[in-house]
Amino acid sequence: MSTQHSRAAARLLVAPSVVLLFLWMIVPLALTVWFSFERFNLLMPATREWIGLTNYRFFLTDPAFFAAILNTLLIVVGVLAITIVGGILLALLLDRPMFGQGIVRLLVIAPFFVMPTVSALVWKNMFMNPVNGLLAWLQKAVGMAPHDWLATTPLFAVIVIVAWQWLPFATLILLTALQSLDEEQREAAELDGAGAIARFRFIVLPHLSRAITVVILIQTIFLLSVFAEILVTTNGGPGTDSTNIAFLVYAQALLQFDVGGASAGGIVAVVLANIVAFFLMRMIGRTLEG
C-alpha cells in the first residue's frame, strides 16, 4: 500500500546513493576518455593538445601492451584454474565428517583476510627468496638447486600468491553451496549403485554449477585488476614479464607522467572489464527474480 507521498519519500531516500555513484562513475570516466585523446604529460603541461587516436595507436602497437594483455589473461585464467579445482576438492574434503571441522575451516579461510601487500611481501621474502626463502631451503634439503621464483618465473610467482589469497574464497562459497545439497538425493544415487565419480559428475557438479559460475565471475572482476601483489613483488618485471594492464597504466601515469597514454590504457581496461561484467550482471540479475 504505497501512497503518492511515500513513493516520493522513497525516491528521496535513494537519491543520495544514486547521485554520488553517478558522479563517481561518470565524471572521472568522462575525464579519462577526454585525456585519452590528448597529448598530456604532467612534466610538460605546455605541450598539452588534442591528438585524436594517437594514444590508442601508440598503445595498441606497443609490445608492452600485448604483453600486459596476455599477462592479465594468464593471471585470471591461472588463478581461476587453481582456485576452482582446488576449491572444489577442498570443499568436498571439508564437507566430510571429521574432528575439529570448525577449526579447519578457520585455517583454510584465513589467507583471504591477509592484506595483499602483506601476503605479497611475506611470499616474496620468506618463501620465494632464492637465498633465505623457505622454499629454497626445502629444495636444498632434497638436493635441488633453489629456484629463483621472481627472477625466472615472475608471472607464475604472482599467480601462486594471488591464488593463495583467493582459494579460501572459492572454497568457502563452494562449501556453502555443497552443504545445501540434498543428502537424500546422494543416498538414493548411492543405493542405485552409482559410484563416487558418477555421483560427483551427475549430482554434485550440477548442483555446484551456479556457485562455480558466481566464483568465476566475481574473482574475474578482482583478478583483472591485480595490482598490489605485482607492485611489491616484481614491479612488473623483469622487463614486462609480470606487467598486467593495471600495472602498465599505473606505470604510464604515475611513473612516466604520461596522462594521455595511461588514460587510453585505462579505457582499454574498462572495455575488457565490461565484457566480463556483462555476463556477471545477467547472472546476478537472474537471481534477483527468484
Binding site: W24, L31, L224, I245, A246, V249, G266, L272, N274, M281
Partner: peptide
C-alpha cells in the same frame, strides 16, 4: 559501478 576497474579512473 563496482565492475569498473580502478585504473580506468586512476588518472583523473
Amino acid at each position: 559501478t563496482k565492475m569498473m576497474p580502478p585504473v580506468g579512473v586512476l588518472v583523473p
